[in-house]
Write a protein that binds this DNA or RNA. Sequence first.
DNA 1: GTTAGCACTCTCCTTTATAGAGTGCTAACC
DNA 2: GGTTAGCACTCTATAAAGGAGAGTGCTAAC
Lengths: 345, 345
Amino acid sequence: MQMDDRKLKILQAVIADYISTAQPIGSRTIAKKYKLGISSATIRNEMSDLEEMGYLEQPHTSAGRIPSERGYRLYVDRLMQIRNLSRREQEIIVRELGDRIDEIESIIRKTARILSQLTRYTSLVMNSHISGSRLRHIHFVPIDTNSLVAVIVTDTGIVKNTIIKTADPVSPEYLESLTRAANDKFAGITIGELNRCTESEDYKRLVYRYSLLDTLIPLLAESLNTSRGGDVYADGMSNIFNFPEYSDVNKAKNLLALIEEKEQLMSILNRMGSGKGVMISIGSELDNNCIKDCSLVTATYRAGENEIGRIGIIGPTRMEYDRVVAVLEFITDYLTGMVERQLEE
Amino acid sequence: MQMDDRKLKILQAVIADYISTAQPIGSRTIAKKYKLGISSATIRNEMSDLEEMGYLEQPHTSAGRIPSERGYRLYVDRLMQIRNLSRREQEIIVRELGDRIDEIESIIRKTARILSQLTRYTSLVMNSHISGSRLRHIHFVPIDTNSLVAVIVTDTGIVKNTIIKTADPVSPEYLESLTRAANDKFAGITIGELNRCTESEDYKRLVYRYSLLDTLIPLLAESLNTSRGGDVYADGMSNIFNFPEYSDVNKAKNLLALIEEKEQLMSILNRMGSGKGVMISIGSELDNNCIKDCSLVTATYRAGENEIGRIGIIGPTRMEYDRVVAVLEFITDYLTGMVERQLEE
DNA sequence: GTTAGCACTCTCCTTTATAGAGTGCTAACC
DNA sequence: GGTTAGCACTCTATAAAGGAGAGTGCTAAC
């Protein structure tokens, strides 16, 4: 069987209609609604072909057709036209996100919120492992005699603090001097290198002078790796009830439970490629039973080479891909721009 | 009509049964199941009395009875026996929460997670306005020539950092000196006082020496007030599907949407009293239409006089109040203890 | 005051009937 | 040969009807 232009037009019509109505669509409706200049009978024949080719399916005999996963795949790969965001939408994003680097925590939240508000789907935001980003600054701030907070600023604009208790009392002067020494030594290296540097001669010499360092650095490295390598944040969960596919309580529960399960969510997000631009996974492509009739659209934002984080939208396979892709592209561009402006300074 | 012991026993039986089954319960069932030594006909009469008194209601004639809000109120005030947590549950809490003061962010999350896991309801955790807590330490850390991060540690163990960009370049030495001056001046005052101190003569003298301070302090005060005065975190949202009362998708949606609406959630949490111990609001007592058939159980944890935060459980009015109260009490005690140990040091 | 008995009520579930939408096939048409 | 009209057939969704079951309220007896 040959795919031709007319078939594509019909497929597009079915997908467009189904995305907006969630109802199986029949040949007569297409003929009336989409003025393709052919009769319903012809459309019927073409649809039958499209079904045979795997792009459409029937919920049951004598219902209309709905797109199959393969149909959506063809649509997002070849048919879909990415809409531009309206001026108003762009303004909302710029206003809400602001233009200053903030605590990573707060950017994540704002981004998640905007994403879900603009798309009306559930949004996911994750910040990646930061093992590739570089230490710009490290500072040890005394709290009291036996505790201090280590403040770390990376070149990607992330600020992270870790509270550390020490066995022996430390003086503020000691910490000041330690801060200076640590900056001299560590500024510019990556978080990953920080992990490994405890072997080096240089490091050992420094520990000789500042014995505290030997407890601090491993603690820091650990805290940077675990806690920052895994923040996922979701917003707009209640949006899933906008879609009839989740009027079945069990389906809704499954999806929500998965979204609350940060670990799993992360692994799914990480499994998505991290190529340039927006990635789309449809239904079973996600390879997870709980969301086998969901689609996930993600995008990565980065600073230079380094992946900083990923943002995404999860929703029914019948998703407004064109809109979602447009929003994601705009926001990743914006975030990337923000980080880059930060780097230039 | 007089409330007597037998009526109370029957009421208790109805409530206990309804809490576990979510089914209206009839006189025959009570007679069989709860061996009160009286016949179903007698129970029928008593239940009729209890309904007249407003403690029970009938979904429709010839269904069994269910507790009314007033019934629950009587139950939680007089009938309920608070169970102790099992050894195992206590261990889970202690293990998961750990015993070190961490970033506030992370404590909130952990607490929310444990609460929802132990109770199987949706948990809410909020940290209160910190205007009453005292500055223990303030530190200005340079990032680059035109930006710095202000790290603030309060006596309640909260660590908060704020990134600030400056119009004019600042040197690390300047910041060091500023840090010393600011600590001399501000250590020990409350966040609320920090807001107001910009009027004082002392402050003006300091600004004369460190002009940067005049932009820093207002920014800090604002960031401490807004961002920290309003973090709410919810976990276990998907738990609401464990309850048949939310098998109606619309109800589930309403509740979830409310929970995602931080502003509203906060105002509801704040409206709950902050007395010692656990507070319970049942149904319409919450005075919010979206959750008019929910109950909210909250507890406040504090450091000395200062309220640090509130934790709570939201679920159907048919809630396992005894269990929930026990869990909340244990966790607030634990959190309070943690903070107090921190203060002593 | 308590209880057995019974008629009555109301919901919930199943069964049955019907309308509606859509298909596939056949035969006619350009 | 592709396209179209017509029609029988299929399947779902919705409404209506008919019990079964659970529970009540009332009365009369204990």
